[in-house]
Amino acid sequence: MSPTPQQRRAARHQLATGPVATRRGPAGARKKPITVDLIVDTAFAIVAAEGYDALTMRRLATTLETGPSSLYAHVVNKEDLDELLIGRLCARVALPEPDPATWRDQLVDVCTQLREQYLRYPGISQAAFAAAPTNLDTLRLAEGLLGILLAGGVPPQTAAWAIDALVLYVNAHTLEVSLARRRPARDDDTWVVSRDEVLRRFAALPETYPHTKRHADELTTGTPEDRFAFTVRLMVDGLVGSAQG
């Protein structure tokens, strides 16, 4: 049976209180000891430089000049590492004191902060998909969002599902933006076209696409930031009825 999150935390605590082995490089130079923080910092550096797809336990071990087995003394597996990475990013989000008067703006701000953290590390939001929020820092973010929603008068069940929907949208949005940003650097993605080219193609469509032809400008306008803010506010505004009901 896989260890529970509580068992993993306990194991890390025991390792942190014991002696830390000294490591030496090929020339005898002293190297930083392997710790959870060093593993997480190195993982972030790999993702920032090459994207989340480049992050594997083997690649991480190679970068740290050690073997994969030494990493498993600190993290249980790749999923455990993912949990730590997302937790670290969630910890950087500043949570406001829930305010019934400004709860909608507070929700948008928290989602925007999380978006900015994810976009620093291309594709990192993949680590958050289908992951149960068991890390304390991840739970802190969910707790903060729940507090804001409840302060706005949103019923508890609606608030719980709203958090899931909002976070899922942030994850999907940032993954799409990360993929789009990396495509121009790849030779096989010559099919990616500019907005002007999309407008030209829409204009050339047959008359069986009257709405697309007529509203091509609206369909293609707006930055990713514009579209993100619009969608989050649309979702949040949809909660107003439940808060007033």
Rank of each mutant, 00 (worst) to 15 (best):
R58T: 14
L60F: 09
A61V: 06
T63N: 07
P68I: 00
S69F: 02
L71H: 12
L71C: 03
L71A: 06
Y72N: 09
Y72A: 14
H74P: 00
V76N: 04
V76A: 10
N77D: 15
K78L: 15
K78Y: 09
D80N: 05
L81F: 05
E83T: 09
L84S: 02
G87E: 00
G87R: 07
R88K: 14
L89I: 07
L89Q: 10
L89F: 04
L89P: 12
C90Q: 05
A91V: 01
A94S: 13
A94P: 03
A94K: 15
A94E: 15
L95I: 06
P96T: 10
E97M: 01
E97V: 10
D99P: 10
A101R: 08
T102S: 14
T102V: 02
T102M: 11
D105R: 10
Q106A: 02
V108P: 01
D109Y: 04
D109K: 10
V110P: 00
V110T: 08
C111S: 11
T112S: 15
T112W: 04
L114G: 05
Q117V: 07
L119D: 04
Y121F: 15
Q126S: 15
A127M: 13
F129M: 11
A132E: 14
A132I: 14
D137R: 09
T138Q: 11
T138I: 00
L139C: 02
G144H: 02
L145H: 05
L146C: 06
G147H: 11
G147E: 05
I148N: 12
L150H: 12
L150M: 06
A151M: 12
G153P: 04
V154M: 10
V154F: 11
P156L: 02
P156H: 02
T158F: 03
A159C: 03
A159V: 07
A160R: 11
W161V: 07
I163S: 00
A165K: 12
A165V: 11
A165P: 00
L166S: 10
V167H: 01
L168W: 09
Y169M: 07
Y169L: 13
V170I: 14
V170A: 10
V170D: 08
V170M: 02
N171T: 00
E176F: 14
V177P: 13
S178W: 03
S178M: 01
L179K: 14
R182E: 15
R183L: 14
A185V: 08
A185N: 09
R186W: 14
D187Y: 00
D187C: 02
D187V: 04
D188P: 04
D189L: 12
T190Y: 13
T190S: 08
S194C: 02
E197S: 13
